[in-house]
């Protein structure tokens, strides 16, 4: 199925310590992780960060295969970044092919970028793998709350994300169904040049857009029928509460980040 080839943003239900953490702890943790990732520039630091990632994955009981599979769609970007960095950085020339030369500084830069990207993608995908989409957007709404004063529509943004996440699998299924239906009428989505292939997508894209708009209309109607009118005065079914495990997780993370910075 189409939806199984898209792992980014997927949630893997579970009941581990990491799954049960408050979404805010996890979001802030990942945010901190990303910042540190861009602050450090030595391999010992990245080693420390990798240890944090591997430990978290172990505690969350995430199968390694899942994490590696999540890398597949971004593999191209990683390879491209590494190559460009290796070739484009000026410095001491190691070897060269035609106008392209690989420099010592370039190799170092490329290795740094590779470490950053790999850790970045694996760790951020761990956030969505261990957090239900609803919890994730709830957490984001809380965290964006203080910015409401300066005009950030926190609730609306969170609601938009919730809806978008909710409809990704639905639309993927729908796309697959329409694709099959058109294939049964002799449509060809695989062969031909770029322009031909783009043209061949019309029988898929038009029905997909029509159905997306229909779904949006239905959803808006259903929400209004239940008196939805935005975030003002809206009560919550689930109230987020920080617990002792959040405190512990926070301490562990801060220690880890600090260690990564100093080594």
């Amino acid at each position: 199925m189409l939806r199984n080839s898209v792992t980014i943003g997927q949630y893997l239900p579970g009941n581990s310590l990491v799954h049960r953490l408050d979404p805010r702890t996890k979001i802030l943790g990942v945010l901190g992780y990303v910042v540190i990732l861009f602050l450090i520039r030595d391999f010992a630091g990245y080693g420390m960060m990798a240890v944090i990632t591997v430990l978290t994955a172990a505690v969350a009981r995430l199968p390694l295969k899942m994490l590696v599979r999540g890398l597949r769609p971004v593999l191209f970007i990683i390879v491209l970044t590494v190559t460009l960095n290796a070739v484009m950085t000026p410095g001491e020339l190691l070897w060269s092919v035609g106008p392209f030369g690989v420099t010592r500084e370039g190799l170092f830069q490329a290795a740094i970028m590779a470490c950053r990207l790999l850790l970045l993608i694996i760790t951020t995908s761990m956030l969505t793998l261990t957090t239900a989409p609803i919890d994730l957007t709830d957490g984001l709404e809380y965290l964006m709350g203080p910015f409401r004063r300066i005009g950030v529509p926190a609730h609306e943004l969170a609601m938009m994300m919730t809806i978008a996440l909710r409809f990704i699998p639905t639309l993927l299924d729908e796309a697959e169904r329409i694709m099959k239906a058109q294939m049964a009428r002799g449509a060809d989505f695989q062969s031909g040049g770029f322009i031909q292939r783009a043209k061949n997508m019309v029988p898929l894209l038009v029905p997909l857009f029509v159905s997306a708009f229909r779904r949006a209309d239905d959803l808006a109607l259903a929400m209004e029928a239940r008196c939805y009118r935005g975030g003002e005065g809206r009560s919550r079914f689930k109230i987020l509460k920080l617990g002792p495990s959040d405190l512990a997780a926070g301490l562990v993370m801060i220690t880890g980040f600090f260690a990564a910075l100093v080594v």
Partner: peptide, 23 residues
């Protein structure tokens, strides 16, 4: 030939004629 569930969701052409002629 295969007619899927709710096949009307696969229509895309500008006219009925063109849609039937797609296959």
């Amino acid at each position: 030939g295969m007619v899927f569930q709710y096949p009307e969701h696969q229509l895309f052409e500008e006219t009925v004629w063109a849609d039937i002629a797609f296959g």
